[in-house]
Design a protein around this nucleic acid. Structure first.
Lengths: 243, 243
DNA sequence: TGCAGAAATTGGTTGGACCATTGAACCACT
DNA sequence: AGTGGTTCAATGGTCCAACCAATTTCTGCA
């Protein structure tokens, strides 16, 4: 016997509010940046208290779906649809070196898989876009002698997009943001990223040749150099702390 | 010049409430399952309105850190610390077949990396624990002729834990939960998981031999069989729909 | 016409009230 | 002893009305 008796839901006002609101957004075809109705109007239309509306919107705000600006209004920050699934992750102690290495291990896994999928799925247009970003990056690397982190990131994003799975870009972007928020000047390694530079071209070559395993291997090599750089930087940091 | 002047915060009451509460949890050494103070008490102690406390708790509830039970109280659901980083992910359209395959691609990436890291880092105790789960799983597979999804999951969790990086378990668990919520009986494939069975042992062998690349390869093979099963199931589903 | 100040709009906060659920204590009956 | 019902206090859920603070819009004067 399955013995499955889910508890009945007697109250779920705020969830109901969010469902209604998601339906509204769908019907009005609202996109990111657009303004949605006032809390007071929502409360009146949905026949619930403004407090309930606020709790519901607080949920969406915590999920990064919406942005509230006092005196102005509430604005969509991302595309919302009635059939969204939420997966909030919390990293405990993410702002020390060990935490950084942990996020990097996740990124290594996703980077390799995205490169492999990209090698399988990338069409001509995606391939051209990736190569364009790669050229820009290499040019920036030559002229500015190494400082090409922004262009580097654009190249990787192009790969994620061409992987055909938006989750890669979502997850890695979230980690990238955390990375930058807490490690803006990563440990003072001056030639940070130098070692990873050549692998961008090799990754692209494998993708262009539709060689998923090669792309995966090259991506792993790239991430290995990044980790080495960070470890070197951490060692430097410890030395300079010790003086 | 970096030109970094963060805007001053004139109002951030609920964030302040959460920070204070995180500090409280830390000081009292509260763990998951334990009850934290009443909303009314928090409001009184922190000198804010109960509504503000509620908005703050709503945030934590949305992040899965806390569970509220009407008439009973508010309970911790996970370890919280003052230096947490939040990374909420929303998957649009996650409950169709394409969405399932997308989450599976992420899982494949993480599964392979976790197995590789595990092969590098697992000590004797972790190795023994994994083998124990493996034995249980194989026994269940023999006696119940295939239906060993629960034991299967326990084996994988043991691998994630031994990877030395809690993020693997966090992320994959979140996906596993989504998976089960929407695909409880995955497409009616009766011998679902049969094909993946032998790879559990091969993965363990590679881990025990401290062979990261081998473990990665075997994990990829395992996920490939799972994806095949699902595709087969989807094809069946289409056929039966058409009748 | 341009712009400073008033007025309206909107999210943020407060305090108080009542409802619905929970859980413990207590009681009656078997 | 144990089963079931009742009472009651505690707690989260909802509502209301008012006010605060930031923003936007309007207005009237120079």
């Amino acid at each position: 016997m399955t013995d499955f008796l889910p508890p009945i839901q007697t109250t779920a006002r705020d969830d109901a509010v969010l469902k209604a609101l998601a339906g509204f957004v769908r019907q009005e075809a609202l996109g990111p940046g657009e303004k949605l109705p006032t809390e007071r109007i929502l409360a009146e239309r949905l026949k619930v208290s403004r407090n309930t509306v606020r709790e519901a919107l607080t949920r969406w705000e915590g999920l990064g779906l919406v942005e509230r600006r006092q005196g102005s209004g509430t604005y969509l920050k991302a595309a919302v649809s009635p059939d969204m699934l939420h997966m909030p992750l919390t990293l405990a102690g993410g702002n020390d070196f060990a935490g950084l290495m942990r996020t990097l291990e996740i990124r290594r896994a996703l980077e390799a898989e995205a490169a492999a999928l990209c090698a399988i799925r990338a069409g001509k247009a995606e391939l051209a876009e990736i190569e364009r970003k790669l050229d820009i990056m290499e040019e920036a690397f030559r002229t500015r002698a190494g400082m090409s982190s922004e262009e580097d990131w654009e190249f990787h994003q192009a790969v994620y997009r061409a992987s055909g799975n938006p989750l890669f870009e979502q997850i890695i972007s979230a980690m990238h943001e955390l990375f930058h928020r807490f490690w803006e000047h990563p440990l003072g390694v001056r030639d940070f990223g130098h070692a990873s530079f050549p692998y961008h071209r090799t990754i692209f070559d494998c993708i262009a040749a539709h060689d998923p395993e090669g792309a995966r291997a090259e991506a792993l090599k790239l991430m290995a150099t990044v980790e080495d750089d960070l470890k070197r930087g951490a060692a430097n940091l410890k030395l300079s702390d010790r003086r």
